[in-house]
Nucleic acid binder design. Sequence first.
DNA 1: ATTTTTACGTACGCTAACGTACAGACATAT
DNA 2: ATATGTCTGTACGTTAGCGTACGTAAAAAT
Lengths: 236, 236
Amino acid sequence: MLFNQLVPPTNRLLDFLPISDYRRLILKCESVEQMPNDVLNNAGDKILHVYFPTQCIISLMKHIDVDKGLEVGMIGNEGMLGSTLLLGVDTSPFTAVIQQAGITLRMPTKTFTYELEQSVVFQKLIKRYAKVLFSQLVQNAACTRFHVVESRLARLLLMIRDRSQSQCFHITQETLAQKLGVRRVGVTKAACTLQHKMLISYSRGDIVIQDNAGLEALSCSCYQTDNETYSRIFHG
Amino acid sequence: MLFNQLVPPTNRLLDFLPISDYRRLILKCESVEQMPNDVLNNAGDKILHVYFPTQCIISLMKHIDVDKGLEVGMIGNEGMLGSTLLLGVDTSPFTAVIQQAGITLRMPTKTFTYELEQSVVFQKLIKRYAKVLFSQLVQNAACTRFHVVESRLARLLLMIRDRSQSQCFHITQETLAQKLGVRRVGVTKAACTLQHKMLISYSRGDIVIQDNAGLEALSCSCYQTDNETYSRIFHG
DNA sequence: ATTTTTACGTACGCTAACGTACAGACATAT
DNA sequence: ATATGTCTGTACGTTAGCGTACGTAAAAAT
């Protein structure tokens, strides 16, 4: 977990902005320390704030029945929560939960929508990220349908690695199971396989990724696809 | 199939517009007759036109491997294809295929984005629909994960009914299977059950819905949820 | 030091859906 | 009239994941 403290507390999405915009916007944000399982937005509720994560991770969950839920998106410091406000509707289609503790930069919805109107460059940036999120969603829907738990778990771990910018992080099998929409036992089985293959080590929620290349090889192509989509939209 | 000809060839999304906007926009559209399996957009390709269906239905497909695909959205005359252009990226994250033949109103991408900038009311309308599509996507992802084929098939048939505005329509089990992301045999089994329950009748692709209430009762709650979302965003 | 809670591992019968193969019924083309 | 292709129904062994239950070990609380 020490790694996290080496990561500068910035949001890479905001970092794309010209310095003048950056400074103005950052001043309108409040720095908030978030704890795991904090709910930032319930599905259907009004969106009061948008959030730019720095070292923390936000999980977008869709619950369809009691105890039946699925993670439909994950937001680290490469993105933001609330980009759907672009579409002029201020209710959220999913529940946003803090997965990894850390600082978020929080901005009131009103300020956000005001700034979107003011700054074309800001609006363009957020639009791009919304597109990334949209694509991620589509990819994840198909992935969930067709790929086996083992590959999906591998992909999920890689996504957490990227967003926590560390080879080690804390997450229980129960939580992983909720994200994947499978039983906890299903995660145990898959995680044991990964462990036997020396790709990860795992003890009471403390995960260390031992073999990045191996894990990527075992994960489904969706991991790669998501990354390429991000690059294409932001850099090319 | 006769029913279809009784449906006036309009697009209900455009119908929301004030008459002046409506007239201007409709003049910039070309009326195009579409045939089943026409591909309007391949995933990843540039979007050259947007489409407002009148009586026809457009299916949004995400393919993840050869022969592994899933329908992630369905567009009838309540919506449009191309709303993601709002986000300023002109590539499509999914493949758009004609499912039911009919007339679409086609507009070049350039015209569409120009009009979005010109007309605030038009932009608001399209934003709302984009939000509907987004919500539909999220709902469908979770539905696909948790609900059984029989319920999902029932829901799919109801969605087609609503969009074709008819109790009878033509679609083969093979096509239904592709949408649901299951084997054709899986659809056969589910369809037989529906038939034995006297909810539908089915012969070589010709489907007649016999019992609307019964079919809705057997379908998963996602059908109702989608409809409520649409109502809330457009009328609530 | 003892109890309680949290997290993980294993086990077992069950079910939905898979992959594949084949046959019959109907439609269309020759 | 015959052949070919399309669509649907059935059948069978296989498998991934489910639901549930129980045991164990570490951590935390008493």
